[in-house]
Design a protein around this nucleic acid. Structure first.
Length: 499
RNA sequence: GGGCCGUUAGCUCAGUUUGGUAGAGCAGCUGACUCUUAAUCAGCGGGCCGCAGGUUCAAGUCCUGCACGGCCCA
């Protein structure tokens, strides 16, 4: 049995007392108005206009009591619903409560309770729009005292563990998740406008595929088989392009069995979209226009402040090629960029550990990540990745060691990854074989050979470009959130151990 | 995995330097108060000081280990 503290026991006693004369936890009230409606209708009216209305048109609202100021025979409460906050004015008399109801009001209710009330809008001496309460009902009791009214709930661990309490207390948290919803809606709007179809592909895969990452493993009892939580939907979405869905997207969770940080949660949300008869160059233009529009409509400007950095989403975004950046920014000479020994020396000098399966491309990207990633503050497309680190991308016509691929960096973080898709089944089979070699040499993130995917490509996939955008990271940027946990409602935490 | 920091009342925090009866504000309870908005005034109650060991006459405080969390690094 739960143990309750003194304050909680008092509130439970109040509930018991109420239950003697009425149903507790009732659901038979009809809430006809929202606080926002009342504000919109009366905020602009002056005291005299509202005075004339007093006692005539009655409104009904419901919400949570967030504050209480008592003067004995008059009480001021703050009531909050999903649309806003309004002050309740509770007294006795014609436009107030009966003596009996007034006593019940004082005796039964607490800060935190969810109540229904009916009353008349008016303005107090200080000009604050308030509801003169004519009748009320307790709908749901708050057994626990709410956090302190001034400082609120600030303990980070408690905020994540008890997100409901965080949402009750911190309006800015609600705003972050409203904004997250808006961002996702806008992405859908942009894709729907182009004639895309939204689909859902499996979350459980019999072979992990579509990205270089370690999967979560689970087991299906009836089929007695291993299943992997998906690390990416890529190969399924491209099967759909083969099937004739030429513009297709999915917004859903990926699961990666890796560490947790301010940038990583084991489950995170991605949008992946595939667009037949387009190239990665087309996607850069689409992406910069879409992100600029979202930034503008969500924050009101193309220029967004993130953690002290002013990010400029005005298109076009900067474009740099991987090799050019290594040469101009990392002190590698043009004639040595393709020399594996030079790259190894450079990597060593940066303290990068060099695994057995390290190739030129692997080293180039390691050096890039170590030296340049953090510096890409303004939105920047990094293009033309080495083929060894891009097993699903189309080879460049002009240079078979590179692929038609870009990643978008903003505020030093990878936000999007896109490429012209590899639709040549013979080349794809070779790439899978190359991945297997890496795996044998110890690369745990190397891809597995997916025979059915090759088979799908053998039926013919149109030339296609595809892209993935990390929704959580994008939301972080547009809500000025320092941690991914601030934009995920229920981030993964170790379970609390109670002694 | 490593380093640093944190964990005290329902919440927000003092108290740890220099070991000696556990503190404040909000919230709660009792009383006063008919226009406040962090209302005000008077009084009262509320503690496994994260957990487990150790040192000591004596530990919230010092030492060790563990748990959970935060930031940084890998």
């Amino acid at each position: 049995m739960r143990e309750f503290n003194e304050q909680e026991r008092i509130r439970i006693e109040k509930l018991k007392e109420i239950s003697k004369t009425e149903r507790i936890y009732p659901n038979d009230v009809k809430v006809r108005n929202t606080i926002l409606e009342i504000r919109n209708a009366f905020d602009n009216k002056n005291r005299e206009e509202l005075e004339a209305n007093l006692g005539k048109e009655i409104f009904s609202i419901a919400g949570r009591i967030m504050g209480w100021r008592s003067f004995g025979k008059v009480h001021f409460l703050d009531l909050k619903d999903m649309t806003g906050k309004i002050q309740l004015f509770v007294s006795r008399g014609n436009t107030g409560l009966s003596d009996e109801k007034f006593e019940k009001f004082k005796r039964h209710l607490d800060i935190g309770d969810i109540i229904y009330c009916e009353g008349y809008p008016f303005k107090t001496k200080t000009g604050e729009l308030s509801i003169a309460v004519k009748d009320f009902r307790l709908l749901s009791k708050c057994i626990h005292p709410l956090p302190e009214k001034w400082h609120g709930l600030s303990d980070i661990e408690l905020r994540y563990r008890k997100r409901y309490l965080d949402l009750i207390m911190n309006d800015e948290v609600k705003e972050i998740f409203r904004r997250r919803n808006k961002i996702i809606s806008l992405i859908r709007e942009h894709l729907d406008k182009e004639g895309f179809i939204e689909v859902e592909t499996p979350m459980m895969h019999s072979i992990p595929s579509g990205a270089n990452a370690r999967p979560f493993v689970t087991h299906h009892n009836a089929l007695d088989m291993k299943l992997y939580m998906r690390i990416a939907p890529e190969l399924f979405l491209k099967r759909l392009v083969v099937g004739g869905f030429e513009k297709v997207y999915e917004i859903n969770r990926n699961f990666r069995n890796e560490g947790i940080s301010t940038q990583h949660n084991p489950e995170f949300t991605m949008i992946e979209f595939y667009w037949a008869y387009k190239t990665y160059e087309d996607l850069m233009i689409f992406t910069e226009n879409m992100l600029a529009d979202i930034a503008l409509r969500v924050t009101g400007s193309h220029k967004v402040m993130y953690q002290g950095m002013l990010l400029d989403f005005t298109p076009p975004f900067k474009r740099i090629k991987v090799k050019d950046a290594l040469i101009s920014e990392c002190g590698i000479k043009p004639e040595e960029i393709d020399n594996i020994d030079t790259l190894k020396d450079k990597a060593k000098s940066l303290g990068i550990e060099i695994p057995k399966y390290a190739t030129k491309g692997y080293l180039m990207m390691s050096i890039f990540e170590e030296m340049l990633e953090d510096k890409l503050i303004q939105p920047t497309f990094v293009l033309d990745f080495p083929i060894e680190v891009s097993p699903l991308s189309r080879k460049k016509d002009s240079d078979p060691t590179l692929v038609d691929r870009f990643e978008l960096y903003i505020a030093g973080r990878e936000i999007a990854n896109a490429f012209s898709e590899l639709n040549d089944p013979f080349d794809q089979a070779e790439r899978f074989m190359m991945q297997l070699e890496f795996k044998e040499k110890g690369d745990e993130e190397a891809m597995v050979f997916d025979e059915d995917y090759i088979n799908a490509l053998e039926y013919g996939m149109p030339p296609t470009a595809g892209e993935g955008i990390g929704i959580d990271r994008l939301v972080m940027l547009l809500t000025d959130s320092p941690s991914i946990r601030d934009v995920i409602l229920f981030p993964l935490l170790r379970p609390e151990v109670r002694s």
